[in-house]
Design a protein around this nucleic acid. Sequence first.
DNA 1: CGCCCTTTTGAGGCATTTCAAACATTGTGG
DNA 2: CCACAATGTTTGAAATGCCTCAAAAGGGCG
Lengths: 250, 250
Amino acid sequence: MQHKIISFPTAAANCEDCRWSRLCVMRNLDATERAELARFVTSSGPIKQGEQIFRQGDPLTAFHVIRAGSVKTYFDSQDGCEQAVAYLFPGDLLGFDALAEQRHPTSAMALETTSYCTIPYERVESLASKLPRFWHEVMSAAARQADADHHHAMLLGQKSAPARLASFLLDLSQRFAIRGCSKTEFNLSMSRQEIANYLAVAVETISRLFTELHRTKVIAVDRRFVKILSLPALEALANEGAQHGIRIAS
Amino acid sequence: MQHKIISFPTAAANCEDCRWSRLCVMRNLDATERAELARFVTSSGPIKQGEQIFRQGDPLTAFHVIRAGSVKTYFDSQDGCEQAVAYLFPGDLLGFDALAEQRHPTSAMALETTSYCTIPYERVESLASKLPRFWHEVMSAAARQADADHHHAMLLGQKSAPARLASFLLDLSQRFAIRGCSKTEFNLSMSRQEIANYLAVAVETISRLFTELHRTKVIAVDRRFVKILSLPALEALANEGAQHGIRIAS
DNA sequence: CGCCCTTTTGAGGCATTTCAAACATTGTGG
DNA sequence: CCACAATGTTTGAAATGCCTCAAAAGGGCG
């Protein structure tokens, strides 16, 4: 199969020129507010695949926004069994869930070479009270993440393995589209193992499902490159197959 | 089995006398700040079992804090299959996840007769910028909920059915304890069906597991009344039995 | 008291995991 | 640049935990 490497365009390290500023926590601020905030934003990274931005248990020092690359947040259970919580792409805010305990409840790891912006936590607090719209944006980001988490719970709780993978691919598709990339062709930044963990199925099942989707020509897949051949078919798969019957609880 | 009905003590409807003020969004405010906030807090309910505080899709008008009773938030998927997202008890904040879209992404239903406080949304915004500590508390509440959601994902993704139920009971135990109730004896405010849905297993499985826990004398259970006979045993159950083996992903 | 809904119990089936092994890919040192 | 190790992916066959279906038992409420 012929295909080029497709990944997110790299953004400028200064906020004025950053191509993701309409997605990140700055998106609804006016020029003055942006300038105010930009004073405290520093550029971090790039970090390589596998390196961590913070570890579970680390004290909260800053919020971060992904600028290039991608990140997964995950839970390290005592007994070594881990659970991927979310995949984050450019523009996504990271670290605010540490606010309650002042330490990070999850770890964050780069899935590929990744750059990000850093906003020191004490600045976040002072800016939030100074700039109401910034407060609103931070809360919005938290709310969006909560919504994503709920969809994730829904997926784990209600959907069969094929529906989970289909939903996952559709979610990626949308998120690529929002970022100006193709919604039908993209490279997965995560391994099968990581997909399996996020969707809470065995790696072997993911592998079989990819093969099956390829065989039925719903997608074309070559290693980490995926091309969606039929969005409608994928959507149908994502919605059918609730694993335990549709019980109408009041 | 002999047992009295155990439920949360009812709290006063005014903030000064409210027994949950050290748990709710007021908990770290000083007297002046509390007074400021209390001006805008109104008392709502009581509402009866099955009634809703808001429905998925409703526009965001206010944040709420449970004052008495209990609530579940849940996802109503298009096809009628629902997923419980969280159970909320007195002191818990409700509704902030609507902030991103200005409409509620989940529905909230009373599990029993429930009273709650209402803070109009426009007041939340203005208070948050006026009172930095209030901003901090709202964000903390959001962060705590995010953390709970992640534990929920962990539970759905990594644990076997018995471990899920054990974890659920332990979670309730802790939350009762924090609220000054017994951590070993309590009444479930939710039906078996609702537990099953939250834990994403069949009702029949939940029923069997309760019977089994009772038989092995880990808990004593009589309808909705639960008495934990051995916390260590329950903890052991909650931690063992990862459903798909402990894979050490970097 | 009788109806309805929730809960419990039993038996069988199936989706997904588990175990096992071949295969492909990437990185490393000679 | 190739041999080789290490890791990630695919495929097959067997095992199993949980779901599904079916039906009885128990409580709540008019």
